[in-house]
């Protein structure tokens, strides 16, 4: 099993507030890894550290290393913009741009310097197919993305992310704003996507973690209490706190 990302001794701070306290985890390639845990334990902060999204907050500071393909993503010689291209992100609330469906998917390629119409069309079609949205929108690519339903918008956001062909896709509670049917579609999609991409997903939904992921990490108060195969964690957790959380005793 190959690890695409390796997180070592990660600590993060906003001003003097310590959010993540010594996080160590390996992210296996072409697998889905779930991050579970109560609110306010640093799951989103952790996710945003993996693609340097926290860099936009001026008070953010981190210690420790995060390797992507063996390379330190916080190395001063490395541009955060390149990291975000390689480590894509899908957000909690669907956030398509107020542009057409086509332009949403083409956006990433445009900012990376692809202007040929034929190439854009090809990638837009491939990405929308990859996100299981093509059949629903192929006749309306010029329509505003805002006219889509919440579930369609989220799949559009996934299409937009895979259009730039990242190695890793981070998903921050991607289904929390969606109805059950849309959620099922996204989960099916995650199953298909892992053949090509590595996925790290934050979720509050235990069932979702068991349905979509092979590996799970349980976060509590800025540290990982337990990590490993999802089946193992949910069936016979080693730590009492993990057991209490997954059985719904707190959180």
């Amino acid at each position: 099993m190959e690890n695409i990302m390796q997180v070592k001794d990660l600590k993060t701070y906003f001003d003097d507030t310590n959010v993540l306290k010594d996080v160590n985890i390996d992210i296996p390639k072409n697998e889905v890894t779930s991050i579970i845990g109560p609110s306010g334990t640093g799951k989103s902060v952790f996710l945003r550290t993996l693609n340097r999204m926290n860099d936009v907050i001026s008070t953010f500071r981190k210690e420790g290393t995060i390797l992507l393909d063996g390379e330190d993503i916080y190395d001063p010689k490395i541009d955060a913009v390149d990291i975000r291209k390689r480590v894509g992100m899908v957000f909690q609330k669907p956030n398509p741009f107020p542009k057409s469906i086509f332009e949403n998917v083409a956006y990433g390629m445009r900012v990376h310097g692809v202007y040929k119409k034929a190439q854009l069309q090809e990638v837009v079609e491939r990405s929308l197919k990859g996100a299981a949205l093509w059949d629903e929108v192929k006749d309306n690519l010029d329509k505003s993305a805002m006219s889509l339903s919440g579930g369609q918008q989220q799949r559009l956001c996934i299409a937009r992310t895979i259009a730039v062909e990242p190695e890793v896709i981070l998903m921050d509670e991607p289904c929390s704003a969606l109805d059950p049917i849309s959620t099922t579609k996204i989960e099916d999609l995650i199953h298909n996507l892992k053949n090509k991409y590595t996925i790290v997903i934050v979720t509050h939904n235990m069932q979702q973690a068991t349905r979509v992921s092979k590996y799970t990490a349980f976060f509590l108060n800025g540290t990982i209490v337990e990590k490993g195969l999802t089946d193992k964690i949910f069936i016979e957790p080693e730590d009492k706190r993990t057991e209490d959380y997954i059985t719904g005793r707190f959180g």
Binding site: N51, V81, K85, G88, M89, F91, K93, N95, P98, G108
Partner: peptide, 11 residues
């Protein structure tokens, strides 16, 4: 959210 989406795509 728009800003984050754009930065997240490597813009």
């Amino acid at each position: 959210e728009y800003k984050e989406a754009s930065l997240g795509l490597g813009a």
